[in-house]
Simulated assay, not measured.
Amino acid sequence: MEIPEKLHKFIYRFLLLVLFSLTIFSLILLTPRFLTILAYFWPLFLSTALFLAVVLVFVKTSSVPATDASVVDKPGEGLLDYVAGLPERPVESHKSE
């Protein structure tokens, strides 16, 4: 009578293990195979790869114009000033004297 009492302590663990095993088994049987997914999404994968390749080519070939760091505002700073209700800052001229 001692063994069933010891097993009774672990009944929830056994049930959880059986439930987990059934879940994994059903997922293996019901999910589509990897090649099926690849065959369905290959146009998306290909177009994404081509787009990223084009972006990398444009980044490597385009030149960024040299600007003075003290003149250029941080991105969005003017919008933040507008939202905060601050007066506009005067635009500095870029004339060489």
Results as ranks from 00 to 15, higher is better:
Pro90Asn: 02
Lys74Ile: 06
Val72Trp: 06
Phe45His: 04
Ser70Phe: 04
Ser62Tyr: 10
Thr48Met: 08
Pro90His: 02
Phe51Asn: 01
Lys95His: 12
Glu92Trp: 02
Val91Trp: 02
Gly76Ala: 13
Leu80Asn: 10
Ser70Tyr: 01
Val72Asn: 05
Val83Phe: 13
Asp73Phe: 09
Val72Pro: 00
Glu88Met: 09
Val54Tyr: 05
Glu88Ala: 10
Val54Lys: 10
Ala69Tyr: 12
Thr61Ala: 08
Leu56Ala: 14
Ser93Tyr: 06
Thr67Glu: 13
Leu46His: 07
Pro87Trp: 03
Gly76Tyr: 14
Leu44Glu: 09
Leu56Ile: 03
Ser47Phe: 13
Gly85Leu: 07
Gly78Cys: 00
Glu88Lys: 14
Ala69Thr: 15
Val64Glu: 11
Val91Cys: 00
Pro75Ile: 03
Thr48Ala: 13
Pro43Ala: 09
Ser47Cys: 08
Pro87Cys: 03
Val71Thr: 12
Ala69Phe: 10
Val54Cys: 08
Val91Gly: 00
Leu44Phe: 14
Leu46Pro: 02
Ser63Asn: 09
Tyr82Arg: 12
Asp73Pro: 14
Leu79Trp: 02
Glu77Ile: 02
Gly78Ser: 05
Leu44Asp: 08
Lys60Val: 08
Thr67Asp: 10
Thr48Cys: 09
Val59Ala: 09
Ser62Pro: 04
Val91Pro: 01
Pro87Ile: 01
Pro43Met: 05
Lys60Trp: 05
Ala49Val: 02
Tyr82Ile: 01
Ser70Leu: 04
Val59Arg: 11
Pro75Asn: 02
Val64Thr: 14
Thr48Ser: 13
Leu79Gly: 02
Val64Gln: 12
Asp68Glu: 15
Lys60Phe: 11
Leu86Arg: 12
Leu56Trp: 05
Pro65Glu: 08
Arg89Met: 00
Val55Gln: 06
Ser62Val: 12
Val55Lys: 02
Val55Ala: 07
Phe58Ile: 06
Asp73His: 12
Leu50Tyr: 12
Gly85Arg: 05
Ala69Ser: 15
Leu56Lys: 07
Leu50Ser: 09
Glu88Asp: 09
Pro90Asp: 01
Leu79His: 00
Asp73Ser: 14
Ala66Met: 12
Pro75Arg: 06
Thr61Tyr: 10
Thr67Phe: 13
Ala53Ser: 14
Glu88Thr: 05
Leu44Ser: 14
Gly85Trp: 03
Glu92Arg: 09
Phe51Met: 05
Glu92Ser: 03
Ala69Leu: 11
Val71Asn: 07
Phe45Lys: 01
Gly85Tyr: 01
Ser93Pro: 01
Ala53Tyr: 12
Val83Pro: 00
Ala69Arg: 15
Val72Tyr: 04
Leu79Val: 10
Ser93Ile: 04
